[in-house]
Computed example of a mutant assay.
Amino acid sequence: MNATITLPDFETMYQAIVDRDAAMEGLFVVAVKTTGIFCRPGCKAKTPKRENVEFFATADEASAGGYRPCKRCRPTEPAGSVPAWLTKLIEALEADPSRRWTNADLTTMGLSPIRVRRWFQMHYRMTFHAYLRTRRIGLAVDMLQTGQDVTSVAWDSGYESLSGFRDSLRKWTGQTPTSIKQGEPILVDRLLTPLGPMLAAGSDAGLCLLEFADRKMLPKQFERISKLFAQPILPGTHPVLTLAAEQIQQYFDGTRAEFTLPLRLDGTSFQETVWNNLLEIPYGQTSSYKQLAQQVGKPNASRAIGRTNGDNRLAIVVPCHRVVRSDGHLCGYAGGLWRKKWLLEHERKAKQTQLPL
């Protein structure tokens, strides 16, 4: 089945740059004839006149057309990259994750606490100070699981009292130091893609979440997996997250058609059946909700198939974006319909020109 792929018309794209609509990120870039510069749809620069713009599907096409990338919105870099003004702070956080930062510290570095707060809320779904607290807890969990005693862990991870450490640990993980030693947290990290940052979560048992960071249902998904697996969720790194980042990058480079990641597809029997059938849809092809319903033995369950697609926690890897209407038209995608269009077009082009499939 061939899906109907249509890019926005000129008026839609122009209105997007007027509105600075970052939701259109990845679908096109806008080039300004009078300046020779091209930008993202959400760039904060002055809106150019209608007659002075032209649109390209990718930054590479704009560059080939003789345009230079905007230094303000940096359209050639992955969306969600750490901006230059924040780099020094991020480096300091990585160098000493146990440090307690204050707004005065940020001001001393020449940073606006409000601006920092907004960036962390946008990219991590939490404030800067909440991020610091979860990082300290993540550091403490790592040390507890290596066998260190509770008192040493409390001091080394930046806590001023043992009781404060125990209370904080219980608040953020729902567990005591003793139970933490016996269990395993789910770790979550950001990875960058041409369609915006994604959040990946996993543990030794496998990858359990991969979602675009701006998805409205993301907090609910985190709540679900925390209850489903009875494990705390903390910022951190893990080999499965590193592997996921590598394979997602290869997918977007057009050099990977299949993923070889350990997955946690836990759900109801019906959900697991649907998700496993999604994994069988070939790269560069599509299936319909009706076809999936027939494949799972529920020919009248097209609506249930749609809901289960929406509950998919592993975007791209479990390719719910390859499901379309019976007439071939696109509909419904939790990450945004524009992303669904982009992914299908990307796979179609890669299959034709790059991947030896």
Score class of each variant (00 low, 15 high):
4 T>V: 15
119 W>K: 02
65 G>I: 13
103 N>T: 07
75 P>I: 11
312 N>G: 01
356 P>H: 13
279 L>P: 00
250 Q>C: 07
316 I>T: 09
23 A>C: 02
328 G>V: 11
75 P>E: 10
82 V>R: 06
216 K>Y: 08
271 Q>I: 01
262 P>N: 07
53 V>A: 03
262 P>D: 06
317 V>C: 01
291 Q>I: 08
250 Q>G: 00
247 Q>P: 02
309 N>I: 14
219 P>T: 12
246 E>G: 01
309 N>M: 12
207 L>S: 05
208 C>I: 13
20 R>A: 15
232 P>M: 13
174 G>Y: 11
99 R>L: 07
207 L>T: 10
316 I>E: 05
162 L>H: 12
298 K>F: 08
242 T>R: 07
28 F>E: 13
53 V>T: 09
85 W>D: 12
339 R>V: 06
86 L>T: 05
296 V>L: 03
28 F>S: 08
250 Q>K: 12
186 I>R: 01
138 G>I: 13
89 L>I: 09
325 R>Q: 14
319 P>E: 04
180 I>E: 02
115 R>Q: 14
225 I>M: 10
297 G>R: 06
73 C>P: 01
148 Q>G: 00
345 E>F: 01
256 R>K: 14
188 V>W: 04
259 F>C: 07
204 D>A: 06
278 L>Q: 03
214 D>F: 12
323 V>I: 11
126 M>D: 02
270 F>K: 06
125 R>Q: 15
121 Q>M: 11
281 I>Y: 02
116 V>Y: 11
147 G>T: 06
4 T>R: 10
158 G>C: 07
65 G>Y: 09
272 E>L: 02
143 M>C: 00
153 V>E: 03
22 A>M: 05
5 I>L: 15
155 W>R: 15
114 I>H: 07
149 D>N: 14
106 L>S: 04
321 H>L: 04
231 Q>G: 01
92 A>H: 04
136 R>I: 09
232 P>F: 10
280 E>A: 09
299 P>T: 08
203 S>K: 01
170 R>S: 05
326 S>E: 15
165 F>A: 08
89 L>T: 07
113 P>K: 09
159 Y>F: 15
269 S>R: 07
208 C>N: 05
294 Q>E: 15
323 V>C: 03
102 T>P: 00
31 A>R: 08
274 V>Y: 01
322 R>F: 03
43 C>R: 09
356 P>L: 14
35 T>Q: 10
217 M>E: 14
89 L>W: 04
271 Q>C: 02
315 A>T: 08
213 A>T: 09
270 F>Y: 13
246 E>I: 10
328 G>C: 05
63 S>G: 01
144 L>C: 05
342 W>M: 12
18 V>G: 00
274 V>I: 13
342 W>L: 08
333 Y>A: 03
103 N>L: 01
337 L>P: 00
128 F>R: 08
299 P>R: 10
43 C>F: 08
119 W>E: 06
54 E>T: 14
181 K>V: 08
122 M>S: 11
317 V>I: 15
40 R>K: 14
131 Y>N: 13
137 I>T: 08
28 F>Q: 09
306 G>S: 14
267 G>K: 05
296 V>A: 03
226 S>A: 15
152 S>D: 14
83 P>Y: 05
232 P>Y: 11
91 E>S: 02
143 M>G: 00
43 C>H: 03
323 V>E: 04
328 G>H: 05
